[in-house]
Design a protein around this nucleic acid. Sequence first.
DNA 1: AGTTTTGTCGTGAATCTTACTTAACAGCAC
DNA 2: GTGCTGTTAAGTAAGATTCACGACAAAACT
Lengths: 153, 153
Amino acid sequence: MGMFRLSKKMVYALEAVVDIAYNAGEHPAQSRDITKRQGIPQRYLEQVMQRLVRAGVLKGVRGPRGGYRLARERRRITVGEVARVLEDADDAQDPLAGDDVSELADRVVRPLWRDLGDTIMQELDSITIEDLCQSAHAKGIDSESGERVQFDI
Amino acid sequence: MGMFRLSKKMVYALEAVVDIAYNAGEHPAQSRDITKRQGIPQRYLEQVMQRLVRAGVLKGVRGPRGGYRLARERRRITVGEVARVLEDADDAQDPLAGDDVSELADRVVRPLWRDLGDTIMQELDSITIEDLCQSAHAKGIDSESGERVQFDI
DNA sequence: AGTTTTGTCGTGAATCTTACTTAACAGCAC
DNA sequence: GTGCTGTTAAGTAAGATTCACGACAAAACT
């Protein structure tokens, strides 16, 4: 059906992206370290990361000392974008269309659901990774990379 | 984990409840008619209905000419309540606790998610079945039961 | 410099778990 | 007994998790 969803995958993705943004030092952040820090299933995260790489949110570098970097500045990546990337890729069709559905469902109940999803997404689109990093900083959470390692390009 | 979710089950439940509220005449609405009208898997809905009955949202009456009625007035049932009933029953524990989770996740990312869920729920709690029926009426959707069949008790 | 080794990401499939759907039968009221 | 709800179990689809192996780039070793 393609129902909107706040999935576990999204949370993992967001945790990983924030982790990279917040802990990134000179070397890129490695998948294994991220999963260790955030308590995310190791093998699973790799798949999530691939989606983020292909979507242009992260940039993966291979080989020893490899890992992941943000593909853009922190303030130019929104939580909404990360969430959208992890939304099921295969639902090319309209989420809640349905021909064999009553008017009541089609014009009252489902619009409510759809509007709700839109509202959530708007909310998420208004929050950037930068915002979350600042929030973490304000709460005195310490970064792996000393402090203030600015992200380039 | 216990992640908040806008599930298909909830949509079905809501569609059914609204259908009952809007189409209810003298006789209770029957499961089969509801599924026919709303395009919901017949046998599946029965289970959903049971949850709603046990939660005191619906009242089932058996035998010929049996069916379902609202257990309360339309304005005293909120969309949020219906959604809550269909939230997985088995997650007795905290939704997003986790001990082996970094501060970054625990104090930044997950609170964001939890707040979002709370916001959604608040929104849903502010909408009653009555509201949806009026919306349907305003849109000129016609009821099975002539018009204006007020609900008793 | 060229080659091998090593450590990481990259990809696809296999397995496990949860949600959804279907089915079969028991219980109750007319 | 007939026609509905009530209950439990079995089957199917979707999501989450794990596994195995290929590709690539840095490092180490001639």
